Simulated scan of single mutants.
Amino acid sequence: MCVAALRIDPGTSGWIRLYPINFRALEDPQAFRKYEIITVEAKPATQDSRPESWRPNIGSLTRGRYLSTWEKRVPWISDYIEDSMCHLLQEVRENPAARSLAAIRPAEVDDLIIERHPGWTPEETAKIEAYVRQLDLFDQGPRRPLEAPRFKAWYRYRCHAPACPGHRQGLLDWEFVAHQRNMGNRDDAEICAELRKRWLEHMCGADRDTAFYVGNQAKRRHVFSVLGVFYPSRA
């Protein structure tokens, strides 16, 4: 999987994409959490021309301070939140090498569309199997291909651009997959209701200062997905 993060090196700041990271193979002390400060050696990706894309040396990873509350997280992230997804898309259309990661504050979140996952496409299957075969990346840990989740979802929202036509972006947050798997064999309707309750009503509620972490695809730079949700309480 890819991990989107913010660099805080002395003299360096901004978004970074770390790939590949096999979380199912990471054992403590390397199994870091979201909003944890880590140190890791990395070099620019050779097969991905997006400027934020770097290849990590997992063996060098060390864990640091965990930002356990929104109060501790907001100061690190607030300066990177923008209001216009439309502007970001225009940048990429004019220059494919433009920014590929951002945090966007929606003006209004209209819906969370949830559908049954049809299974991996042939292209996705080939990519997963190719990764599993790269045994030199990890000395131990699960190498079986990742199973497709039960459901997939898209956010429908408008950004703050005056003429925003609306955006429909897939939700690729690993926590969304983990949430539905943690509900086990409950029926589809019940799982969908719980997903909507958390990912729409709670995270995007009127009492939350919601922003979407978004990133694009290497092969289709104009296609952005929601990689995660930032949802501290409104002040």
Rank of each mutant, 00 (worst) to 15 (best):
Q47M: 09
G119L: 03
F230P: 00
L18C: 03
S53F: 08
R105A: 13
F176M: 00
A161N: 15
G205Y: 06
D187V: 04
V3R: 05
T39E: 11
S100R: 00
F151R: 04
I191F: 10
I113W: 09
N57E: 15
C204A: 08
W15Q: 07
V223T: 11
I58S: 04
A189F: 09
Y66G: 00
N95A: 08
K219Y: 08
A97D: 13
I191Q: 06
D209P: 06
A193D: 13
Y231L: 00
N185D: 09
L26E: 09
I21L: 13
Y66A: 07
R168W: 07
R144P: 05
V226I: 14
P44Q: 07
Q180G: 02
I191C: 03
C164Q: 09
C192E: 15
D9C: 02
T12C: 09
T46M: 06
E94C: 01
R116P: 01
A42G: 05
L135R: 12
H179Y: 13
E201A: 07
P44Y: 12
H117F: 12
K219S: 12
W174A: 03
R181T: 05
S84D: 15
A107P: 02
I191V: 14
M1T: 11
I37E: 01
R186S: 08
Q180K: 01
N216C: 10
W154G: 12
A189W: 08
E36K: 04
R93T: 08
H222M: 03
V223M: 07
A130K: 13
F23N: 04
V74L: 04
Q169T: 08
Q90F: 12
K127E: 14
D173K: 00
G170N: 02
D173S: 05
E41H: 12
A97W: 01
R55M: 11
L135Y: 15
I58V: 14
Y213S: 08
T46S: 13
Y155A: 10
S53W: 08
L18T: 03
F230C: 02
M203Q: 10
V132N: 14
I77W: 06
F224L: 08
Y66E: 07
F212L: 05
P149W: 09
A130V: 00
Q134C: 07
P96E: 01
Q47R: 13
